[in-house]
Computed example of a mutant assay.
Amino acid sequence: MKKGNGKLRANFSEYPFSQNSLLSFSPYEPFMLNATEPLSGLVINFHPDFFCIHKHHKEVACHGVLFNNIYAPPLINIDKGTEGNIEMIISQIQIELQKPALAQYELLISYLKIFLITASRLKTEQQADAQKVTAENEEPFILQNLKNYIETHYKTKHTASDYADMLSITPKALTKLTKVHYHKTLTDLISERIIIEAKRELYLTNKNIKEIAYELGYNDEYYFSRFFKKNTEVSPQLYRETIGFDKASSL
């Protein structure tokens, strides 16, 4: 986002944004921009078949940072020191796209990797700085435990009360904490973690939807499909057909 400001609605939450912001979204991640003035920006849009962040997360470190992070806003501020580097990378991508040549795919992948690594580093730094602002706003220890519990049990425990019981706190009190620190309800956090794994399975494997649903703790395939569509606005089958997956590497 090069010019303008407003509010971003995404992942059940609302965040302010301004010029020199970078917004990052996964395929079929609903979002809305409510602008207070005219916007000017640029979109880098790539399909997982071109470069899959799930497969290459160790190379670029953007999975769980720029994308699929249920605890942080999907945006970062581009500082002056990084702005020039990003502009240069984007310029090289644009030049390369205009004139197909030898090893174009490999070169575009390289530029994209540099872009993602640069953005991931910046977001990681900003998150670390934000956590040091004041002791009053430090993430409570109970939320650190909550994140660990969600990561460990999201396939078998799907309700807010499940996690509240494990932490010996009421669901209402725990949700109040998650809304203050993550701008999301506890139910939202659980749902998003399940959806991230469902998308990964739909893209990277050739398991049928019933099997994926069962592995995520849903005995009813149709209930799972309704849950998926409610959170992504598309069915699991349409997601798979549209985004695609590499059967050869899954066998």
Score class of each variant (00 low, 15 high):
I195W: 01
G64E: 05
T170L: 07
T187R: 08
V234E: 02
G84E: 10
D188Q: 07
T178E: 02
Q19M: 02
Q94T: 15
P74I: 00
G6Q: 02
A160R: 03
L186I: 10
H54R: 11
V60Q: 04
R193K: 14
I78H: 11
Q92T: 15
N85P: 08
I209L: 14
M1L: 11
K176W: 00
E151D: 10
Q98C: 13
A198W: 01
P171G: 04
K7M: 06
T124Q: 05
S91F: 10
H56S: 15
K179I: 00
I117F: 03
F31I: 01
S120Q: 14
T242I: 13
F25P: 03
E192Y: 01
L33N: 12
I89H: 06
A72W: 04
I89R: 12
R226I: 05
A35Y: 00
K99Y: 11
L42M: 14
F17M: 04
P48L: 05
S235K: 08
A130Y: 12
L102F: 08
A173S: 10
E14R: 09
N148W: 01
K230R: 15
N206P: 00
Y214Q: 14
I190R: 04
L202P: 14
S110T: 13
K199S: 02
L112D: 10
L102Q: 11
T170C: 08
K184T: 01
D220W: 15
T152Y: 06
I243S: 03
K230A: 15
P48F: 09
M166H: 02
Y214T: 10
Y223H: 06
T134C: 15
T82M: 14
S161L: 07
Q92H: 13
N5Y: 01
F25V: 02
E221M: 04
M1I: 07
K157P: 01
M166V: 04
R193N: 12
P16E: 00
L33W: 02
A72M: 14
Q92C: 07
I114V: 14
I212T: 08
N34F: 01
K176V: 00
T187W: 03
A213S: 04
I53A: 03
K157G: 03
T156K: 12
L167F: 01
I86Y: 03
F227C: 05
S24H: 02
E96R: 13
I93A: 06
K80P: 00
G244T: 06
Q98D: 09
K179C: 00
I89M: 05
E197R: 07
L146H: 07
H183D: 05
Y182R: 00
D246T: 14
V180K: 07
C52Y: 09
T82P: 11
S249N: 08
Q127N: 15
F227Y: 04
L216N: 10
